[in-house]
């Protein structure tokens, strides 16, 4: 087990992103889909930090800082939407929310 290289971190980040994407497709619960979105954002963060470390630039970490902030905003607004949706429809299943379905 040698020292992990940039390739290790990038493959790990890609696998994590794929797991998150698969989760959004497989699961039908809006809350779980939000969690999978978080997984994908975290995967992108991991590759940014790895690039920042291996190119010796702190700027990548500043970008990760912004991504974390925006992710927190997204969760707050998304969960508020979810709660008001639940008040109307009494469900959080994506397939039972069909108001916009043609």
């Amino acid at each position: 087990m040698g020292t992990p290289t940039l390739g290790h971190y990038l493959v790990l980040s890609g696998l994590l992103f794929a797991i998150g994407l698969a989760g959004v497709i497989v699961r039908r619960d809006l809350l779980i889909m939000y969690m999978c979105l978080e997984i994908m954002l975290n995967a992108a963060n991991l590759s940014l930090v790895a690039f920042s470390r291996f190119s010796h630039q702190v700027r990548g970490q500043v970008l990760v800082f912004f991504v974390i902030t925006v992710a927190a905003v997204e969760v707050a607004v998304g969960l508020a939407l979810l709660v008001s949706l639940y008040r109307m429809k009494r469900t959080t299943k994506a397939e039972e929310i069909t108001a916009l379905k043609f």
Binding site: T3, T5, L6, G7, L10, V11, S13, G14, L15, F17, A18, I19, L21, A22, G23, I25, V26, R53, F54, S55, H56
Partner: peptide, 28 residues
């Protein structure tokens, strides 16, 4: 589940092929 596994394999293979060349490794 099938679609998820397919995405997993495709993305994993893509990232595996995209492993950077030795320039990054020397830098590390």
């Amino acid at each position: 589940v099938g679609a998820g596994l397919l995405i997993l394999v495709l993305l994993g293979a893509g990232f595996w092929r995209a492993i950077p060349s030795s320039a990054w490794e020397a830098n590390s």
